[in-house]
Design a protein around this nucleic acid. Sequence first.
RNA 1: GGGCGGUUAGCUCAGUUGGUUAGAGCGCCUGCCUUACAAGCAGGAAGUCGGGGGUUCGAGUCCCUCACUGCCCA
Length: 966
Amino acid sequence: MFSRNLLGPTKDKMPHDLPKAYDPTAIEDHWAGYWVRENLFAVSTPTELVQNQCLDGKSPFTILLPPPNVTGRLHMGHMLNQTEMDILTRWRRMSGRLALWVPGTDHAGIATQMMVERQLTEEGTSRQTLGREAFVERVWAWKSHYGGAILEQMKRLGVSVDWSREYFTMDERLSVAVREAFVRLYAQGLIYRGAYIVNWCPRCQTAISDLEVVHQEQKGHLWEIRYSVLDSFGRDSGEYITVATTRPETMLGDTAVAIHPEDERYLHLHGKKLRLPLMDREIPIVVDPWVSREFGTGAVKVTPAHDPNDFAIGERHHLPSINVMDDRAHINENGGPYQGLDRYVARKKIVADLEAQGLLGAIKDYTNNVGHCDRCKTVVEPRLSTQWFIAVNKEPNGGGESMAEKARAAVRADSSGKKAIRFTPENYEKIYLNWMDDIHDWCISRQLWWGHRIPAWHCGVCHKITVPEPGATGDPAACAHCGSDKITQETDVLDTWFSSGLLPVSVFGWPNITPETRADFDAFYPTSLLVTGFDILFFWVARMIMLGCWFAGDVPLPDGSPRRPAETVPFREVYIHALVRDANREKMSKTKGNVIDPIEIVKQYGTDAVRFTLASMASPGTDIAFNVARTEGYRAFANKIWNAARFIFMNVDRAAEVGIRIERRWFAAPPLLTNESRLEDLWIMSRFCNTAKRVNEALEKYRFDDAANVIYQFFWGEFCDWYLEIVKLRLNFNESLDNSEATDSLATLLYVFQNSLRLLSPFMPFLTEEIWHALYEGMPPRKSIALTSYPQFEESYLTQVTYPSAETSMEHLVLAITSIRSRRKDLGIEDKVLVKAKVASSKSGVLRKNRDILLKLARLEDVEVVLFSERDSDDRYKNLAWQAFGHVDVYLDYQKEIDVAAERERLTKDIAKYEKGLAAAERQLGNEAFLAKAPVHVVEGLKEQEAETRLLLEKTIAALETLPKE
RNA sequence: GGGCGGUUAGCUCAGUUGGUUAGAGCGCCUGCCUUACAAGCAGGAAGUCGGGGGUUCGAGUCCCUCACUGCCCA
């Protein structure tokens, strides 16, 4: 097998004996392992770099892998994300940048805790039985055993990350950063603790942030409940006020009923009290303009402990808050007779009891938006609870901008129009800013055991909170307020996104930035790019911007000068990629069962083909409907490349037989072509340079689709379809002949092929690596094609010769060939039959000069080439059945009966087409306004087109007339 | 309810600042195992660019409107 030669090439073996069909499984594992083993993409701490300045003058290209959950399994979204990052990183690396891609995993608080809890349940135990310390140990054990499987999957995809820098968000050094970030924010007055309505997940038994709540429409009911109005003696007045609710069980915690101050229906009730049914509690009627008069009955029950709006009303009217549910959303001791019941059981019972007491009004069907836990899909319970928050809109102690303000400024254009962070696609900038404009304080505490424990200590004596001073190491021994040593650490942990939001600063050493340790930070911060999905735009991207801008601002530049805001950002660019959907544009989900496992597809079609599929469909802003039909097509492309290699190796071997060896300089520099060089060589070099230029431009704009399609088109449609076919004419190696022509052709062929491999390698790293090594017969100049340079548009090279004329000449030749082929088909000439042809053209010189190509590719026995003018003035050419193809007319000398009817139909159809086109052109050219206002090249182009169409029309009509009458 | 996007060939999608007769892949039809490749080669069919209106010499592209559809936020 081919790759075995690379591991130990032997002279006596045929080195280029490749299997006929490309088999990715035979090579991919080998190279994936090789890249990791050889540490090819490791970037050591730069020693002589100044801030963002490489020795060669190019800044480093730095990119962080969005850390997958340690519990994660690779899905299509990851694969898209990683393919895009890998293409860009490989491309930047090959383009001469110091390219660092840092991988790692996220401890994923809730997800991981759930995973281990599930295991414990199966074992018949629980985390509570184990206790906190043992449980956390158990999670670590789980992590070392099962965690990070996703990184192994990534290795299989061949991502060019620096594995030596792999991190885990709970690593010691990153935990230090988390703690320091917390204590600094606390010292700045931006972290506070308080009782607020939070989203409570009864399943996970923790508060979750607004972002972790997914709203879903759900069919439910709207229950109307009658509350008795009391008279001035506290007795039932006989009057009722009716409220409507979707959550009747919360009435247990009602502390008021609110009405709109100007609602005429209730004016007489201002200042009255009500009897809360079932609980027999007196509650006031309050007036509040927030109440909508149109909704329901215009009277709303107020449950400050279980609804954010009610909480606000409660604050305004100094109402008590009665929390009626416990951590599991069971009714607690404040729920009277309902204590201990699950919320939904309680709901049923309360409705039944109300009905029994005649206090239940209408029950209406009602669809409302119910919040669910993002993680476990349990219905979230808004619930009053004491949590830790970051005040994102608040000025820090000592003044200055808030975190949100800094984070907005980083994205908005400054006075000179520059943006410190640029989004692609651009519209995400607006989405980000809209969100940032009404951002709420961030609830950062979670009632979990797995995560970074909040570095705050509660005093058992004075009940105040002690948070260490910034920079302090070690835990406090005594209360900072009363000196008592009876302090215990807060049991809550931090939101996972708090630690991942710090990654851009923490992975490069923050907060430990000293002259000795700062080299990484100086070189790699800000990172160059973030590639991620829009689903974590707010979760992660926004938090990184807030935290990055906040903390990097304290780190001076290497020369000691203060860091300007634009240099505090965590990344300079954000590329938001699309969602990968299934072939029917459905969102992939486990419940729908339409999840495509990338590893399965990779096994079936090869990593390169899947990568190429994703790249070719990754048009910014458009979701990807992943269709294996596409992947099948790109597997065919991989096979095409493979077979081109086989063809080339075959010729290298044939050359070797007559003593011609590959010379390294053929690879190193482009062939020296002149205006006298052969057309196909000039043309393919021109096309290659053009392709390289377009690929570089496309990648610069994150147009992975354009880049992939341009390469595909070049390699298959130009290099294989035309160049290889033509070059077969030249590759005649013979001991008795002068082989210089064949050798020259081989040199150009190898140059273009080898550089095409480089061009392709960021997209198809495995296949190109394999063939590239084989080209050097196992003795390559570098360890990997990934360490060679990326083809660039070589301006100086292209000005040496007249490439544009080579392109037009080649186009003409191609037109002549395809025209003859088309005519052959029309006449029903079998492929293997060689015929004689006459070709009239506007460029007969090109066709005469490349007669051999014309004969071979059009399968001709002989060809006579004349100019149009010669043909038209010579009687010998009159009355022949010419077929017009624009700049070329074709006549084939073939005796077989032609199908007159079919021919007539075809010509008639053509005539109709030309007439239509001609009419359109004439109409426009007859328009004086058009002639006056349109740019010259447009007018000239149209005139030319009109003339051509007219000529085609005339010729076709003539051809129709020469057909025998029926 | 607020905001953003989409509608182009049978399918999945490109189409850059308005400019000559709208492209690609897959699929489809016809013929070929032409020694790199049948995962291939050659030739071909297929679109009134969601509907309507407007701006313009000129609109898939800009504006208005309607329809359908997706997403985010509340």
